[in-house]
Design a protein around this nucleic acid. Sequence first.
RNA 1: GCCAGCGUAGCUCAGAGGUAGAGCAGCGGUUUCGUAAACCGCUGGCCGAAGGUUCGACUCCUUUCGCUGGCUCCA
Length: 585
Amino acid sequence: MAVSREQKTQAEAEIDIMRHSTAHVMAEAVQSVFPEVKFGIGPAIENGFYYDFDLPRALTPADLSVLETRMAEIMAADLPFVRQEMTKEEARGLFAAQPYKLELIDGIPEARVSIYRQGALVDLCQGPHVSSTGKIKAFKLLSIAGAYWRGDEHHPMLQRIYGIAFGSKEALSQHLKMLEEISWRDHRKLGVELGLFSIHEEAGPGLVHWHPKGAIIRQVIEDFWKDEHFKRGYDIVYTPHVAKAGLWQTSGHLDFYQENMYSPMDVDGQEYIIKPMNCLGHILIYKTKLRSYRELPLRYAEMGTVYRYERSGVLHGLSRVRGFTQDDAHIFCRFDQLEEEVVGVLNLARFMMETFDFTSYRIFLSTRPEKFAGSDEMWEEATEMLRRALVRQKILYDVDPGGGVFYGPKIDIKLEDALGRMWQGPTIQVDFNLPHRFDASYVGEDSREHQVVMVHRTVLGSMERFLACLIEHYAGAFPVWLAPVQVVVIPVADRHLDYARKLEVELRSERIRVKVNARSESVNSKIRQAQLEKVPYMALVGDKEVAASTVSVRLRRGEQLAAQPFGSLKEMVKTAIANKAEGAY
RNA sequence: GCCAGCGUAGCUCAGAGGUAGAGCAGCGGUUUCGUAAACCGCUGGCCGAAGGUUCGACUCCUUUCGCUGGCUCCA
């Protein structure tokens, strides 16, 4: 039973057509500026479109506004899109000067192809298109980027122009506002502003330094994570950061994963390699004794820090780095336990996602690729178990045919954040390969040895990427349980400082993260500082509070609460922490 | 890695072939203040790094490192 999640609505399909047509208009504009242009492809994408061009010179941002003006003229002229069918031979004649189009024609299986004309442009295109260029309502060109022809780095690099297009000016400006919001929430920007982490040129790109405020968030999450894993029958393990090269030879990583691994270091004449994955250590632990079917499943979990070489051009803040800590676990089980284990992981994954306020996500089941390890039957059965686990959890999912890794089928969960963007979330991967390579087995009921089934899984992904996601999801305003500073005490004047310290001690005794702002600044200024730091509770103490033994509370979202005794603030904060829910946005 | 753009004070940014500037932050002082910026003063820079052109380079050229947007890949 295949459960597919969504079909495009009629309206979405229509707007895609319009976006595609906008790409053609852009192509015409480019052609008018660069008559010698060679066209690549120009599809509609989410929110807009792009088109790839081979041009005599590099485009500059200034070119974009010229092209926009030209495009607006083409739209004002309301030129009709005209479809025409012809044989491939005729098309080859028509596109004789267009090598990329010729290559595309060669790849089309049908005998006849279609072309579209509008104004001065002729383009090989399946269509459909809007009836005329005047039907395009609102667009904007956003950026220029290099893109390999057909995405292959051995092919020439073309210049890609990205644009967005919408059904109305309002929708366009709304989207532009969203883009602004996205850049405003950027974890790299907020990470600096909130003092969470830094990355240093001197230390190397893609290597993260967690500052106290970022580290406390991470620590809270890790404590919570360990707790939850303990409850669910996982055992916490620790494994070394380096291992002899031979181990990576046995695992096959040296053959298949080498471009992501750092060069070996010499230790007493032996080659050692920094681990890019945690699985091998867990396998070694598994293999330390003869395992009985009775002790399975074994679930080894580790916040395991790994190092992977990433090409310099792909590094990005916390979300794509060279050293990161995975919330990793490996489940060793019998084949007949696989489905139940996957159900367990899905449960945990959903619990985690809910805890961090991700209410929407998409699930992908990836099936057998062309090259694979293990037997057909194993794959089929395992894939079926993953499928059944999803169905049992009543989860809608999409199938990614052939999208599995070579060693087994997998389930990927992609999270949707507060701005509707997707992030790689939990993954569950069945592995037939490593147990085979390491001869990891157990003794079955039949007294015979059986190969154990291994499941790699992470529910947060990596602490680095997860934090990047959380920072942007919460826009830096972390819920109380995660907020680096939960309460700032603000004395109105210096004479209230002692009283403020008393409140600080009282809150700290409950392990509430509290700071006193003792600076000689105005109340307004201290409140502003706390707001910018996105501290959930501001506790004001002045003459009135000292006299009445109370505290006035301002919430991060701006709300002011009536003066109250210390105790009730304490309880309010403790409740918010315990609920992990937002109490003070 | 590749294409393009960008690197000026802790941050945001201005400047420009004649030797560097603002706001914020920081520091010192004054102020003791009631829910998003009190006032005055001061410090702060090898203009990413190296080489070249030039009488003179932060500015022009080359190389290099890093960042940004993409391509590819992925936790």
